[in-house]
Each structure stands twice: as structure tokens, then as C-alpha cells.
């Protein structure tokens, strides 16, 4: 690597060990490939720059702390707004979604990949893939009309029996339009993503490792823990991150379900709460100039959060590279 790297120092875009040939096809393809790569970076940079540029006026106008304020009156004079409640609602609803969707999604993927008879497996895989194609407005309406009335009992049960855990206690006796319901709807929305991606990585686990574990006398579940999970771990993390990305950014389903309130309420089964995306959708049409800028500023925070989530995922995946199975 080191000696070829020096040859290419003049042009970092040429992969190590590949000198540019004079052939037209190679040059065209190289130009196209590096152009596509640069284009992605430019788009990302442009989005970031747009968000920063457009949010500056509101951040200058904000008379309170942008990060700790739980109110949203950007068009008042002086402007009073902050993202604390949005951040809380977004993170909590996404966290509820992941807590519910990860075990179930991985369970579905395991069942399809290792337990189900072949015809059942392919049918189930097809159905979970279909679920991924359902538009989010449908999930939102379904969550509002069907899930919410039917989830009251569950939320009440959580209060009655697990109420000693602060987040499950509900002193209002009203269980609808809560972060909990929003989290459950989000969980169902990210479930197909999680299960489809983990299924793909489970199927790629080399049969040599699976047979090696079984030949040692492992049960099926022991085989899964010994050979499948370690190999599939980076893929499972990517699946979780993809799901988390969708849960964090989901707009319409959350906007329909939550009764938008700028509060930080740890009692997740009580009504109220808000999220970045839902707030932008609900407030955009009625916002004044500073209001629009404030919404863009909140979008910038969401953008940074998803970037951070993805970078964290990359870091986790690369931490034990030696043991990744790629060598």
C-alpha cells in the first residue's frame, strides 16, 4: 500500500495501486464515478450550508437560550423559542420505537432466516417488505383511528402495574395522543426496515460458520449467538441506525398523533410532546420570517443529530475491525 500510495499522491481520487490507463472507457468511467462521489459531498455540504445560513437570523433574534427553552414564539418581539421540548420528544419517541422495533425486527429476521420452513419464510419476507412500502400518512391515520383507542388499555396497564417506574406513571388518567403511542406507531413503521436489513445480513452469514457451531453441539439458538450475531453485528447496527434515522425524521404520523405541546414530560403515556419534524410541518404555513428561520434552525439540529447517529454507528462498526470477519 505504502509504495503505491506515493505514486498516486498527485491524485487522491485514483485508488491505490491503480494507475490511470489511457483507455477512453476507463477515463469516462473514472470521471463518472468520482463525479458521483463528489456530487454527494457537494449536496451534503450545500444542505448543511443552507441550514446554517437560513437559521442565523432567528438565532440572532432569539432572546432566550436556544437549547434549553421549551417555548416556541419566534415571531414575537422579543423572540422566545428553543428546541428543548422538540429534542426531548424526538429522542424519546424514537427511543421507544427502537426499544420495541429492534427485538421484534431481529426476531422476525431470525425466524425467516433460520427457523421458518422455506415457503413460510419467503411469504413472510414478502409481507414485511410490503409493509416498508406503506406511505407514512397511512400509518399516521391508522395509528390515530385504530391504534390509539386500542392502546389505552395497555397504557393504563403500564400505569397500574409498572407505575412505580416514573416514566410509566400517569396522574392525568388520559392516555391518548402521547409520546408512547407515537413511539409505537414509529416502531411499526421502522420494523420492516430493521427486519429486512437484518434478514439480508443473516442470510449472508457463511454456512461454514453456522455448520461449525452446529458441529460443536450448539443448539440453534446457541448457533445464532455464536456464529450469526457476531458476524452480523455491523449489519444489525446499520439496520438499527437506518430505523432510527426514519424514526427521528418521521413527520406526518407523529404530527397526527401527538397533541403538540412544548413541554418536557417524562410521563410518556400522558398526552403531549412534539418532535422536530412534526413541529416544522405544523408551523411552517403560519410562520413569519423569523419563525421560518427558527424552524430551519430546528431542522439543522435534527440534521446534526442524524449525522452524529450515523457517525456513532460507523465508529461502533469499525471498533473491532480485526475481528470483523472481513479478513
Amino acid at each position: 500500500m505504502s509504495n503505491t500510495a506515493t505514486e498516486n499522491e498527485h491524485d487522491p481520487l485514483i485508488p491505490h495501486g491503480h494507475k490511470q490507463t489511457g483507455r477512453v472507457g476507463d477515463r469516462v468511467f473514472r470521471g463518472f464515478a468520482s463525479g458521483a462521489g463528489i456530487f454527494v459531498l457537494v449536496i451534503m455540504g450545500a444542505i448543511g450550508a443552507f441550514l446554517v445560513w437560513k437559521s442565523i437570523p432567528s438565532l440572532q433574534a432569539d432572546s432566550t437560550n436556544f437549547f434549553t427553552t421549551t417555548e416556541w414564539f419566534p415571531d414575537d418581539n422579543p423572540a422566545v423559542f428553543g428546541i428543548a421540548a422538540l429534542l426531548f420528544g424526538t429522542v424519546i419517541s424514537a427511543a421507544i420505537a427502537m426499544v420495541l422495533a429492534l427485538p421484534v425486527g431481529i426476531g422476525i429476521a431470525l425466524f425467516i432466516a433460520f427457523y421458518a420452513p422455506r415457503p413460510v419464510a419467503s411469504t413472510l419476507a414478502f409481507i414485511t417488505d410490503l409493509l416498508a412500502a406503506v406511505p407514512s400518512i397511512i400509518f399516521g391515520l391508522w395509528g390515530l383511528a385504530v391504534l390509539m383507542p386500542n392502546m389505552q388499555g395497555t397504557a393504563q396497564w403500564l400505569n397500574d402495574y409498572l407505575g412505580w417506574i416514573p416514566i410509566f406513571s400517569n396522574s392525568l388518567g388520559i392516555y391518548s395522543k402521547s409520546l408512547f403511542i407515537a413511539g409505537v406507531v414509529l416502531a411499526i413503521m421502522v420494523l420492516p426496515t430493521v427486519s429486512a436489513v437484518t434478514r439480508e445480513v443473516f442470510i449472508q452469514v457463511p454456512s461454514a460458520h453456522i455448520e461449525g457451531a452446529l458441529a460443536l453441539g450448539a443448539t440453534r439458538w446457541e448457533m445464532v449467538r455464536m456464529a450469526v450475531f457476531p458476524f452480523a453485528r455491523p449489519g444489525m447496527i446499520s439496520a438499527a441506525m437506518l430505523g432510527l434515522g426514519r424514526a427521528l425524521g418521521e413527520t406526518i404520523a407523529v404530527a397526527l398523533i401527538l397533541s403538540a405541546a412544548f413541554t418536557i414530560n417524562w410521563h410518556i403515556t400522558e398526552p403531549g410532546g412534539n418532535s422536530f419534524a412534526a413541529n416544522i410541518a405544523l408551523k411552517w404555513n403560519e410562520a413569519g420570517p423569523i419563525g421560518l428561520s427558527a424552524l430551519i434552525a430546528s431542522g439543522l439540529v435534527l440534521f446534526l443529530i442524524t449525522l452524529a447517529v450515523n457517525m456513532l454507528a460507523r465508529w461502533i462498526v469499525s471498533r473491532r475491525k480485526d475481528f470483523s470477519g472481513a479478513n
Binding site: P206, A208, H209, E211, G212, A213, L214, A215, L216, G217, A218, T219, M226, A227, P230, F231, R233, R320, F323, S324, G325, A326, N327
Partner: peptide, 22 residues
């Protein structure tokens, strides 16, 4: 069968150490 495989060990055509294990 799990007990059978515990009693009768097997070595495969291609070496298959678990890649994520030391």
C-alpha cells in the same frame, strides 16, 4: 442430534474458525 454432535467432533473442508473470536 445436539448431543450426538457434542460426542462426535467434525473438521471441515475449509478452515472455519469463528472470525469474531480470538
Amino acid at each position: 442430534p445436539v448431543n450426538v454432535r457434542r460426542t462426535i467432533g467434525m473438521v471441515f473442508q475449509r478452515p472455519n474458525p469463528f472470525p469474531t473470536m480470538s
